[in-house]
Simulated scan of single mutants.
Amino acid sequence: MIRITDLRHRLLDIPDLTLSTRHIAVIGPNGGGKTTLLSVCSGIEEPEAGSVRLLGRPPSAVKVGWVGEFPDRTLLFSRVYDEIASSLRFRHRPCPETDRTVRAVAEVGGIPRLLGKKVSALSGGEKALVALAAACVDDPEVLVLDEADSHLDAGTAERVSRVVQESKAAHILWCTQSMDTAATADYVLFMENGRVRHRGTPDEVFSALEETCFYPTMWRVCR
């Protein structure tokens, strides 16, 4: 469970929010506070006031995997294999176990051919998949994606979705500009001006957004 109480941070103003579902989509206009909320929930930022609890613990005590919109800002190692293996090595996992795990997560993401390559030689979509593999390799309890699918072609975006769904994370917080992706979530938060304006199942939230640009394109075609 994710529990937010009396949260005040920058423009965020969230008095009370409890999330018990696994896949939670975070949507809304630019500047609405989505990235700030994800940063606080992941432990990157400490809230100015109030509290956030993930699985009953502060974010700093939870194993969180983070994937941002721009992988170049977070990829640290020159070789793909080393980037994906880094968190396992930091935890002093045995070398054979590390190798098996790295190759397994690369297989799920469809990137085993990239393991020996230089990160600098990858395309933007390949970097996104490597960043996601690095975030998932150590089985995070909570997986946070901040518009990680924003600059991807359809095939790569589908691979990202597959890796995310196959992760063992108890909660997935996914900020996305794709309303079709958000429509597949268990729960949706619509944020505006730092506040949660709508929350609920995709049907509940998007019924309130039908006359806006936030209504899923596929729903307009199929419903």
Rank of each mutant, 00 (worst) to 15 (best):
T18P: 01
C136P: 05
A25F: 03
R162W: 13
C213D: 13
C41R: 09
L88I: 13
P94D: 08
V102M: 06
S161Q: 12
A131M: 08
A121Y: 08
L54D: 06
L189N: 09
L11A: 04
G125D: 13
V108L: 12
V102W: 07
R199V: 00
T184K: 12
V163Q: 13
D153I: 02
A49G: 01
A133L: 05
I111F: 08
E158I: 00
G110K: 06
E166H: 14
I4D: 11
I44V: 15
A128V: 05
M191Y: 03
D6W: 06
P29N: 03
L132S: 09
E83V: 14
P58L: 04
R103N: 04
I172H: 13
D153A: 00
D180E: 01
R93N: 05
E147I: 11
V205Q: 00
L55G: 14
V137H: 03
T35D: 13
W174G: 05
E158C: 00
I84A: 10
V196Q: 08
G155S: 01
A185F: 05
V64P: 12
L132W: 06
H23R: 14
G32D: 04
V160W: 10
V108I: 15
G200S: 00
T21M: 09
G65K: 07
L17D: 11
G50M: 03
A154K: 05
R10D: 12
V163I: 15
G68F: 14
C41H: 09
V142C: 12
G50Y: 03
A128G: 09
L37H: 12
Y187G: 01
D138L: 14
K63M: 14
A183W: 03
S161H: 09
A133Y: 03
P71S: 12
V221M: 11
A183E: 02
V62Y: 13
S123Y: 05
P71F: 10
G50T: 04
P112T: 06
S78W: 11
R53P: 08
A183G: 02
K34A: 04
L12S: 07
I2K: 15
V52A: 07
V137R: 03
G125A: 11
D82F: 08
A85K: 12
M179H: 01
G110F: 09
L209F: 04
E211A: 14
R197I: 10
K34M: 05
D13R: 13
E204F: 00
R195F: 02
E211G: 09
D186A: 04
K118S: 15
A61V: 15
R159L: 15
A25V: 02
